[in-house]
Amino acid sequence: MPVQTITRKTETAKPKLAVYKFSSCDGCQLSLLNLEDELLDIVGAVEIAYFLEARRAEQPPPYDIGMVEGSISTPEEAERIRQVRRDCKYLVTIGACATSGGIQALRNWADVDQYKQYVYAHPQYVASLETATPIATHVFVDFELRGCPVNARQLLELITSLLKGRKPNIPNYSLCIECKRRGLPCVMVSKGEPCLGPITQAGCGALCPGCHRACYGCFGPMEQPNMDSLGHQLTGTQKRTAREMKHMLRMFNGYLEPFKQASDHYERQEKQNA
């Protein structure tokens, strides 16, 4: 992905950072705020021009870096994202919601009106779209940060690399590589856990395998994931059902290809079996 050199400016004009929220839980914005040790350094290097979760004061656009959290779930949001794109030179989506539609994209496989009637006493007041979709479905996105939530280190690396004009050191390879660098024994091999690590993008620092748990793919698909082979192993050797497979893949990144295609495949298989 090309990185624009956004900051070849004089000392006085620090690049302006804007952070936006769409349909989301705020967790990714919190990841930014959780960078306690580095937050002051970031504030020293960029000007936080628009970040409602952190400060009330806001400066008018344009902004140099825009970070977008959340998916597009309402007609209002679909409008607003276009303005955000116009306001930001460099647009980054942060987190699973913004890059894949997030957990709320599960409704894309269901009837939203029916849901509304179950949940709300007066569903007619709820204005929402039929689908929850990633930002990149609506506008051009310069860079995507995966994860539910995003990894704070990756967030810092992205900001730093934009400031320094280097290619962000944000890998697309499998989680396994990070996991093995930490020296963790493979949970799939040593415990027979259904781990999505071999098809999931690295970046979290192998959090779940570090707690003896299988990866559930919150960073979404890696480069060239071999869904067939892992699926074959999980349904064959590990004897997972098609239903289990579908549920594993339809989590935070279920609406992102090729997780979507694979989960649809297991849904069809589930129906055939029934």
């Binding site: 070849r8 004009g165 280097r166």
Partner: peptide, 10 residues
Amino acid sequence: VGSVTRAIEH
């Protein structure tokens, strides 16, 4: 062509 050569360009 890449980030290093772009940096040198500047």
